Amino acid sequence: MSIQHFRVALIPFFAAFCLPVFAHPETLVKVKDAEDQLGARVGYIELDLNSGKILESFRPEERFPMMSTFKVLLCGAVLSRVDAGQEQLGRRIHYSQNDLVEYSPVTEKHLTDGMTVRELCSAAITMSDNTAANLLLTTIGGPKELTAFLHNMGDHVTRLDRWEPELNEAIPNDERDTTMPAAMATTLRKLLTGELLTLASRQQLIDWMEADKVAGPLLRSALPAGWFIADKSGAGERGSRGIIAALGPDGKPSRIVVIYTTGSQATMDERNRQIAEIGASLIKHW
């Protein structure tokens, strides 16, 4: 067993022997301040990774656009098919120029040779490549099948209805392509620590998230040296922004954090800054 596999296998073990965790309302004060600064709703939840206990939450059962955070769930569904012998990570998928959609920095470079399922998941999570996500959605049967996968996990809230990039439209009061912070946090925890996926697939999923290259201005910008984070960000229309993450000190994750916002007129930089400040408060009061 590799060191990384050992780390993920012992996530519940280490967490069980940690000192009790206590909620700190100071972080919620910052979440509410972010709402004021952005002029928009902000949803927040913080779960203990081992027990699933909610440590703090704000608007945990209000719907927010998922945006690209759905790509972690998508690759979880792909990995479940791999575990069941219905898919192979090494299978190569070929596609054409007509398949390319807006923001496809990886797939646009491989029109000639195609990409493997493993490479597509890596591109979808680490670079948020939209064509990679659409190609992977095709392998599982489309958005409705991802929703069905989530329902089978016990998540009857999260739903995907459309493809990239239309799913980022974020129309107010439109339930399409949305989740709730509580539902997303619980589902992410199941994917990373539950028995739904094999140990190898859980490790692969967290490795992809740990290698995320496009979430630097968010929670990662607030992390002290030595902290662990595996995350996936999302951005959408109407001032929408979000991030889902597993993080913790001492090089291992111990909490799940989900943050979503929508309806702001603020710039992307300002949305990023507010999420980073929430992260800084979380870490300060850990």
Rank of each mutant, 00 (worst) to 15 (best):
F228T: 15
K30P: 15
S281T: 10
V72P: 13
M209W: 13
I93H: 00
I125Q: 04
Y103W: 00
H285T: 02
A84G: 05
A200D: 06
S221P: 15
R189E: 14
S104D: 05
Q203H: 10
F70V: 06
G216D: 13
T158K: 09
A211L: 07
G154I: 03
M67S: 15
I244A: 09
H151N: 07
Y103M: 14
M153Q: 09
H94S: 10
T193F: 13
R176I: 03
D83R: 06
T178N: 14
R202S: 09
I171H: 00
H24V: 09
I171F: 00
E169A: 08
P172I: 06
E145F: 13
D113H: 11
A230K: 07
M66P: 04
S233P: 15
Q274G: 09
G85Q: 09
L196S: 10
G236A: 00
A124C: 03
T126K: 14
G234P: 05
L150F: 01
S122E: 10
R273E: 14
L49W: 03
T116D: 01
F70E: 12
T187E: 08
T107D: 04
L150I: 13
T262P: 04
R91T: 08
T261W: 14
F228K: 14
N98H: 10
R220S: 09
V82E: 01
G43P: 09
A185H: 08
Q88P: 04
T112Q: 04
K32A: 09
H110R: 05
A211W: 04
P105A: 06
L38P: 04
A215I: 07
R238G: 00
Y103S: 12
E145H: 12
S221N: 15
R92N: 09
T147A: 06
M268K: 15
W227G: 08
T112G: 05
G226S: 07
V82T: 01
Y103T: 07
A245H: 13
R241P: 11
A183V: 10
L197C: 02
V101Y: 11
R255P: 11
L47C: 03
E119S: 01
Q204D: 02
G242N: 09
N152D: 13
A170I: 04
G90P: 02
K144F: 07
L188F: 14
A276Q: 12
V157S: 13
G251K: 15
E56K: 08
S201K: 00
M115V: 02
L137V: 06
V78M: 13
P105D: 03
Q274W: 10
N134P: 04
F149R: 04
A245P: 10
S281Y: 02
T267K: 12
L136Y: 05
G90K: 05
L247Y: 12
G251S: 09
D207S: 03
L111Q: 03
T262W: 03
A148P: 03
T138Q: 00
A230I: 06
T178H: 13
L136I: 12
P253F: 11
S233Y: 13
S240G: 00
L205S: 07
A235P: 13
G251F: 09
V214S: 14
E108L: 08
V42L: 15
L111W: 06
E270Q: 14
A245W: 04
D161L: 03
F58W: 04
E26V: 03
R59Y: 04
L192D: 06
E26K: 04
L160D: 14
L191C: 11
K213E: 11
T107A: 11
G242I: 05
E108A: 07
D212V: 12
L197D: 13
I275T: 08
G141K: 03
T107F: 03
R255I: 15
A222H: 15
Q86G: 09
L150Q: 09
L47M: 08
L137W: 04
L47F: 08
T187S: 10
S104R: 04
